[in-house]
Nucleic acid binder design. Structure first.
Length: 196
DNA sequence: TGAATGATGCGCT
DNA sequence: GCGCATCATTCAT
C-alpha cells in the first residue's frame, strides 16, 4: 500500500452550503479521501455533474422527498450514495442549505493514495479504476453504508490541495434522458481519467 | 448495441 | 401489498 500523505486543508461546511454550480466547478482539483477499514484511499476529482432541486427533472429530488433521496434535503457537506442498474453505486456530495435538495455527482478522479486497495476492488483486466462514477465507487469500496455520512467528519472528506485544473470544460450530463440540454457536467480537459 | 441485475417509485387492487 | 417501467453504468460482443 502506498503511503502518500495528502497535503492541504479539510474543506469546511461553508464550502458546501453555496450554489451547486459553484461548488461543482470548484470541486475539480479537490482530493477525495476515504478512511476505509482496509486502508486509506485518496483521489483528485476531475469530473462532476450538478443535480439541482425540484425543478431539475433529472435530479432524484424532482419527485419530492423520499426515503432514498432524503439526504439531499439536508444541509450541504454530506454524502448521498445510491445504488443503480442493479450493480453500481454512485457517490454524490450534497450542496446548498437545509431544505434545498441538490448534490454533485463525483464521476471521475485520479488516484493518489491507496492504489493497491483500488486494484484489489477492480476487475483484473482494468487499468483505470476511477474513470467513471460506478467504477470509482467500486474501487473505493463505497456503498450505501456511507450514505448520509458527514464530510466534515473523519471517515470521508475532501481536501483543498491548492491545485486546480488549468482548463475546465462543460457539457450536457451523461446517461440521462430528462433535462439533457443543461450543461451541468464539468471536467478537467487535461485529465486522462475522464469517463467514456 | 445490448445484457447484466435489483432497488425504487408509482399506479392499481 | 403487487406488478411494472425506469434507471445519474459498465463491459463484452
Amino acid at each position: 500500500m502506498s503511503t502518500n500523505k495528502t497535503k492541504g486543508k479539510k474543506i469546511p461546511r461553508s464550502f458546501y452550503l453555496r450554489s451547486t454550480l459553484t461548488v461543482a466547478r470548484e470541486l475539480l482539483g479537490k482530493t477525495l479521501v476515504y478512511h476505509h477499514p482496509r486502508g486509506r484511499m485518496a483521489a483528485d476529482i476531475v469530473e462532476v455533474e450538478a443535480y439541482i432541486g425540484r425543478g431539475d427533472e433529472a435530479c432524484h429530488a424532482a419527485v419530492g422527498r423520499t426515503e432514498r433521496n432524503a439526504v439531499m434535503f439536508g444541509p450541504g457537506g454530506f454524502c448521498y450514495v445510491y445504488f443503480i442498474y442493479g450493480m453500481y453505486h454512485c457517490l454524490n456530495i450534497v450542496t446548498e442549505k437545509q431544505g434545498f435538495p441538490a448534490a454533485v455527482l463525483i464521476r471521475a478522479a485520479e488516484p493518489t493514495d491507496g492504489f493497491d486497495i483500488m486494484r484489489d476492488n477492480s476487475p483484473p483486466s482494468d487499468k483505470k479504476f476511477t474513470n467513471g462514477p460506478g467504477k470509482l465507487c467500486r474501487a473505493f469500496g463505497v456503498d450505501r453504508t456511507i450514505n448520509g455520512i458527514d464530510l466534515c467528519g473523519q471517515t470521508v472528506y475532501l481536501v483543498d490541495t491548492g491545485r486546480q485544473p488549468s482548463k475546465i470544460e462543460t457539457s450536457p450530463r451523461i446517461g440521462i434522458r430528462k433535462a439533457a440540454d443543461r450543461q451541468w457536467r464539468f471536467f478537467d480537459a487535461d485529465s486522462h481519467y475522464i469517463s467514456r
